[in-house]
């Protein structure tokens, strides 16, 4: 069976989630691989959440926020940007490709851009193959007696 990546997107309420909504309402096609979690602001997405998604088996994770300068909470997306480095570092430590994580901006009107970035991401992750971090070996599953 062909590999279908699971991709989790954290989308902010004010911009990117609205863009996703608009894309849906406009009947634009985008990959079914995406699971969207609505958050109030991209700045809320602690690297812990991202890493937990990977450890639970996500093949790719996205954080989607407003364009810089357009954050509803002034600088939430700038914080998200600062934390990007942390996620990159963690991916490296876990032996995961940096392309499995992406931070992107799109405004509430940019339905097309939304479709474009998630499609790109899906294709990129499809190329990388399944998340090797996903617990598949019985050794890794918790054998709690």
């Amino acid at each position: 069976m062909a590999f279908e990546p699971k991709i989790l997107a954290f989308s902010c309420n004010w911009c990117s989630y609205a863009a996703a909504d608009l894309a849906g309402a406009s009947r634009m096609q985008y990959p079914a691989n995406l699971r969207i979690v609505r958050v109030m602001c991209s700045g809320m997405v602690h690297p812990n959440l991202v890493m937990e998604a990977f450890s639970k088996g996500a093949d790719g994770v996205m954080v989607l926020g407003c364009h810089p300068g357009e954050c509803h909470y002034l600088d939430g997306n700038i914080k998200a940007q600062a934390r990007l480095a942390v996620v990159e570092e963690m991916l490296d430590a876990y032996g995961l490709e940096p392309e499995r994580f992406r931070l992107a901006w799109c405004s509430s009107a940019e339905a097309e851009r939304f479709v474009e970035v998630v499609t790109e991401m899906t294709e990129a992750v499809r190329g990388l193959g399944p998340n090797p971090f996903r617990p598949t070996r019985p050794e890794d599953a918790q054998e709690v007696a």
Binding site: H46, P47, N48, K79, R83, A85, M90, D92, A93
Partner: peptide, 29 residues
């Protein structure tokens, strides 16, 4: 908890360039 993740996050959130830290995984974990 995850000491590496939490420490990197604490440093990054305070504007410290985490790349200035040598041996990040081996040091923080």
């Amino acid at each position: 908890g995850n000491q590496m993740l939490d420490m990197l996050n604490a440093l990054a959130s305070n504007g410290i360039d985490i790349k200035t830290l040598p041996d990040r995984a081996g040091g923080l974990l």
